[in-house]
Each structure stands twice: as structure tokens, then as C-alpha cells.
Design a protein around this nucleic acid. Sequence first.
DNA 1: CATGAATGAGGTTTCATTCAT
DNA 2: GATGAATGAAACCTCATTCAT
Lengths: 219, 219, 219, 219
Amino acid sequence: MAAMLTAVTPATELRTRDADRTQLVILQAATDEFADRGLGGARVDSIAARAGINKRLIYYYFGSKEALFLAVLENTYASIREAEKELHLLDHEPQTAIRRLVEFTWDYYLQHPEFLTLLNSENLHRARHLQMSGRIREMNSPLIQMLADVLERGRKEGLFRGGVDPVQLYISIASLAYFYLSNNPTLSTIFGRDLLAPAALSERLSHITEVVLGYLLRR
Amino acid sequence: MAAMLTAVTPATELRTRDADRTQLVILQAATDEFADRGLGGARVDSIAARAGINKRLIYYYFGSKEALFLAVLENTYASIREAEKELHLLDHEPQTAIRRLVEFTWDYYLQHPEFLTLLNSENLHRARHLQMSGRIREMNSPLIQMLADVLERGRKEGLFRGGVDPVQLYISIASLAYFYLSNNPTLSTIFGRDLLAPAALSERLSHITEVVLGYLLRR
Amino acid sequence: MAAMLTAVTPATELRTRDADRTQLVILQAATDEFADRGLGGARVDSIAARAGINKRLIYYYFGSKEALFLAVLENTYASIREAEKELHLLDHEPQTAIRRLVEFTWDYYLQHPEFLTLLNSENLHRARHLQMSGRIREMNSPLIQMLADVLERGRKEGLFRGGVDPVQLYISIASLAYFYLSNNPTLSTIFGRDLLAPAALSERLSHITEVVLGYLLRR
Amino acid sequence: MAAMLTAVTPATELRTRDADRTQLVILQAATDEFADRGLGGARVDSIAARAGINKRLIYYYFGSKEALFLAVLENTYASIREAEKELHLLDHEPQTAIRRLVEFTWDYYLQHPEFLTLLNSENLHRARHLQMSGRIREMNSPLIQMLADVLERGRKEGLFRGGVDPVQLYISIASLAYFYLSNNPTLSTIFGRDLLAPAALSERLSHITEVVLGYLLRR
DNA sequence: CATGAATGAGGTTTCATTCAT
DNA sequence: GATGAATGAAACCTCATTCAT
């Protein structure tokens, strides 16, 4: 049927696809630029150059630099929420589930450094854009509920300690990964060693896992 | 002693004192501005206005916006290092020492929000300024060594687990406090509750303490 | 004749009618926009939006914003000339004829505020477009000749003073109505009262009539 | 004393004078540009070029194009109010006073064409700026009161008709001069003659005077 | 006949920095 | 030691117009 539509209205199809692609290209370029320089430091000209399009198009499709930033944020949040859905924590033993969550968080942050800088930018601006975006506020993370279930299961099995707030734990897991990666430049400078070296990375992941499980596991 | 100086060279002394005070006022205003808006978002005009001085003086005393930022960073690091020295971790039982360290970290970040934003800014800029500052790199935190001692003492007493890297633990303690406070705007928005409310704050501090001790304490 | 065309080439006729209608819609939208914002302030996008058509059509039918403005002007002049023809000043007593002329002028300006702003725009541009339009320059107002006749008749009857230049009087009548309405925003602001209130309007019309007749009537 | 001040603070004096002069030069250039092209058509670059100063200074002193326009309006109104004060209508016979008022109005508009275009611009914008300016609204014209006195005196002497609203008459006098001059480009084009030729100008002034006095004088 | 996508020139405004006193 | 005036480069954004279908 898609083939039929294509046959019937190829022009429209193509035009539409071009517009979509252009928007996507802009969004990607903007994500990179905002991640590299922050909202204030990003340059619209630079985004246009990265995207290989006419600057005017940015305004045609997104309206303003600020609105573009919001679109980038929404897109970024949508991506992580999408990835989180693939975790299926409930399919695993409590302890495995926790390990998976820690590893997922660590890997995602490691592979999406733009997520960290964008969030830092947004926090610098007091979450002004997030508050404007109903879309993002509706994208609740499925993790909190999953984590609550895992914790409860673990507790029932006599494995985990009780009284653990899933939100606090979620934030803590994020903290342990986020801070290390986001503050890597200053930390590496202060400690005088490259915290992004492969050995350092795997050491950090082990440490985080041990901290989290050390806290959770019943003694 | 100040009286003596005044007696000898009143004019010079006054001028000097004024100059020092002017520099301090600029530094304070710049700290606020950089903390509020980031390096890119800060405005030299705004700093001058906050300081209540002529903009030209900023260039007279600091040379450039960038250099001023560096001065602010140095000052900020000096302050926290100064505070850390007051901790005297070695005067306490291992477990108490850890508690004190966690509480100190938490309180310091809570009372010095500018420290968090300035660090975020510096990380966005890949620690470019820190690397230029021999002064900061020399200001080694006394905490790492103290923490190593505490951990070793705790281990010997059979209280703490062994094999804990003091640097990793130091970073983890910082992470658990830093992330929550630095990302508070987005977290509060996403979770739909005020994470800076007094109850929320004390709850977070308890959680952090439990995580750290839960990890450390022998079972 | 239209019927013949329809009979012969129905499709063409339909297309033509659509085309005509589109042009008309554009012309109307453009008139509103130019009247509201002036030539410089008018936006082609805004005209397209008001007309509910694609922007490209404006260029298809009118060639350029400037040419569209000229078309609007021609249309506007054509309308007032058409209305003036209905006045039939010569069918009335001299004094009645003058009254009718004053009232017509007042009412027309009142009901066609776009005429005033468009003329102001054109004057700001030194009548550049008018000079380009042979069509408008050929649309001589029938009023001057009619007014000359009325004045001559009135003079012969011993009613009106002699030596009155019909062009001067025509301009004066226009002045007395135009200025009040065109400058209403500033006048209302300066005098602190609403000069467009119904009572104010009828008072103004009385005044204008008295001024004109007071000047014309023999003593 | 001025000399003393100059002697004491020559630098300040000179600097201040320069700043004042710069502002004045900008104001004059802006008046010309806004008068020539309207608010929308005026270019900040062009104003800077006319003034022979750096464009940035316009923002330094006036803040924005819009604010500059307001300053120009205020200045323009202040000028005409100043000139009106010199009229001293009360020192003359009623009929002479009216003649003086008509001639003043005519001459002022003739010699200050910028006043006409600026007002047209402001009316196009619905007096938005005037309403924002308390200063202008406080600059009441002294003419209304003077005119009221003259009319009353004339009436008492049996010279003028009674029941004349000074505001209406003031507006009418302004109308008769304003419209002719402001709409000169289109009028000259339509009538095919140069209405600014010296002979035409004096003819118009005579006509206006006759209209006003013809209306006022008792028969 | 009609349209959405795209563009280049130019507009207003901002900003760190320097000048002149 | 201190200041108000001034600047050039560059930022964000707008607009009439054209392209491709």
C-alpha cells in the first residue's frame, strides 16, 4: 500500500520527505552545537553550517533559537525514554535487574555525552524550557515504576533492604554515573589522570555497581 | 598594625585598601553573574552594575572577561579547600568521620550553589581555564589523603570493607550530593515535586549517608 | 456575452472566474494590510495569510509587492471616483449641492478609512506609484467641474461670494474631513477625548458644513 | 560661576557637552530619516550614517529604534509648543490674532515638513508612542486657551459669530494647512500642477485665511 | 492553477573591549 | 585610581522573492 501511495503521489511524498529530512538534519546539527557550546554559546550560523542548510530554514521550521533548543531537548528526552523502554527490568532477577539498570545508565551517558551537557544547560536556565514543554513532562520515565517493583521483589525475597525510595535510588544511580562523566574535564585535571581511559571507565562502573548493591543487599 | 600603616602612608594605604576592596567587590559580583548565567551568558556590563563600579575597572584589574572567570574559579576553589581543612576527619571514629564528610559535602554544596554552576561552566569548556591555572592544580584537596587514612583505619578495625579506592569514594560522595542539587530544576520539573523543600533535603541527606555507609560497612 | 463564453469554453470560463476571484481576494487582503501597516510595514506573508492563499500566487498575479500596492491604489481610486459619480451635484440647489458634497466627503472618508492611510502611504513615497499609473491620472474627478458649475450658479443667484477657486474649495472640504479622521489617534490622545464618539462625529460634520457655507454665503 | 565650574571641572564639562552633542546629532539625523521614510522604512544604519556616528551609540543613548522614534516625537512636539508660545495672540485685535494664527500654522508646517510626516507615521501606529509618553501629553498647547479668549473677545465686539468651539476651529485651521502640504505629492500629481510653486503657496494661504475669516466674521 | 521548500540580502540589536580624559 | 564615550565584529532574526514540483 505504501508502494501504491508512492506511485500515486510521488511528488508530495518526496517533498514531504525532504522537509522532514531537513528538519531532522537541523535537529541533529543543533543537538551537537548546543551540546558543545551550551545554549548561550551556540551559534545559529554554526548550526546552519553543520547542517549544510540555509540559516533561514532554521527559522522557517523552528521559529527561533530558543524554540530550536526546546525541540532539541524534547528530542533528547524522547530518545532516552525510548531506550529505557528496552530495559525490561521485570524480566530479570532483582539483583540482575539492578545491575542492568546501573549498566544501562552508565552506557547511555557514556554514549550520549550530549545528553549530559544539554541537561546542564537546561539546569543553568532553571528548567525554563522543560516547564514550557507539556510534551516532555508527559514523557514519564517507565523506570521509576519498574525500579519500585524490582525493589519490592528483592525485599520480599529477603535479598534487599526495605524502606528504599525508588526515586532516591534512581537519582543516586544517575548521580554516580552522571557526575563522573559530566565533570570529567575538571576531575581529570584536578586528579591529574585521564578518567576516560578504558581502564578507568570499567573501574568506575565496577565501583558504582558495588556501591549500589552494597547499599541494597541485606547483610 | 593596620594603624601603623595608616600612620605612615595614609594616602597609599587608603588607596591600596580601596583597590583591594574594589577587586573583591568585582570578584564577588562576577562570581554571582557567572554562577547565574554561565561564562557565555554572563555580561561584563552586568558584572559592573552588580559591583557598582565602572566597567573599565574590570579590565584594569583583571584584563579580560576570560581572565576574570579564571580568577573567580581560583577564588572558588580556594574557598572550598579552605573549608575542607576545617574538617579534621582524623580526629574522629571512622564511621563518624565518613558521616562528617558526607554532611560537609552536602552542606557546602547546598550553601554554595555558585560552586556547582561554575564547575558546570568550566566542564562545558573542557576545563580550559583550570588547565591554565597552576594555582588551582596545586591546591590539592587534603580530603583524599584523610579519606584514605579513615578507610584504612576502618578496614583495620574490621568495620569497613577493604579494597575501596578513596578517589572513587570521594567522587561518589560528591556525585550523590552534586547531581541532586545541580540538576534540581530539571529533576523537580520531571518529578513534579519541589526537591529543595526542607523535608526533601533532609531525606536526601539521610539517603546519601545510608548509601555510603551501606556500601562501606562490613556485613 | 459572458454566457457565450461559458457555452463555448466552460472549463476556461470557470478557471477564469476562479482566477478573477483569487485576484480579488488578494486585492482585498492587500488593501487591508497596506491600510493597517503602510507600504513599508505590510508583509507579503501577512497578505497571503489574510487572503487564505499561497504566497506564490501574489507574485503570479501581481509580480511584486510594489506592483500589488499600485494595484491597490488604482482600485481604491477607482472606487471613490465611482462613488463620486453618484453625487449628481447639478440636480440640486447650490446650497444643497454644497451640503451634499461636504456630507459625501465626510461619510466616504469615515466609511473607507483605508483610503486615508493608503493616501498617506503614497504621499510618504512622494506619489511615486501614482505617477507610474496612467490609469489613475486619467481618472479625473468629476467633482471639480461639477463644483465649478455649482459655485457659478450660486454666484449668479447672488447667494455665493465670487472668485472662489473650485480646486481650492475642493481641497479645503477634503482637508476639513480628512485631517480630523486621519489624525484621530494623535488628536484624541492630545486632547484626551474620543473624537470618534458618535456625538463628536456629528458635531464635527456640523462644524465643517458651517465653515464651508459660512465662507461661501454672501453676507 | 559657569566659568568657575568650567575651570574646576573642565573634563567633565567637555565630556558632558560631547555626549549632549552626540545625542543631539543623533536626534536630528533620526528626525530626518523618520520623516523621510516613516518608522518602518527608516534604517538605523542610515541614521548612524547621517549622524556620522557609530551605530552602536544609538543604542547606547536611546536603547532601541522604537525608543529613538519616541524621543524624536517628543522633541518635535516640544519644538512646536515652544514656537506656539511666541505667538502672543492676546496682544492683538481679534481679527489680527486669527490671521496671525493661520499664518503661523501655515508657515510652521511649511518650514517643518518633518512634523507632518512624523505625525502621519504616529497616526499609522495609532498614537502608540504618544500614549507611552507622559511628557508629550503634558505639553498642552497654549493655543486652545488663547484661541478661546480671542473668539470670546471677537464675539463681544460684535465682530465674530458666537458658538464657535475653539478646539474645532483649531483643528480646522490645522486641517486646511496640513492636508494641502502633507498630501501635496498626490494632489500635485492628480491635479497636474505644482502646488508648492510660490504663487500656489501664497494663493493657498489667502484662501485659508478667507475661509476662516469668512466663517468667523459676522455678516 | 497552485504549493511548500528554500534563499540571500539586509535589518535590529548585543557585546567585549578600547579611547580619552 | 577611575570614568563615560565610543567602537567593530558578530549575533539573532526578517523579508521579499524564487525554486521545484
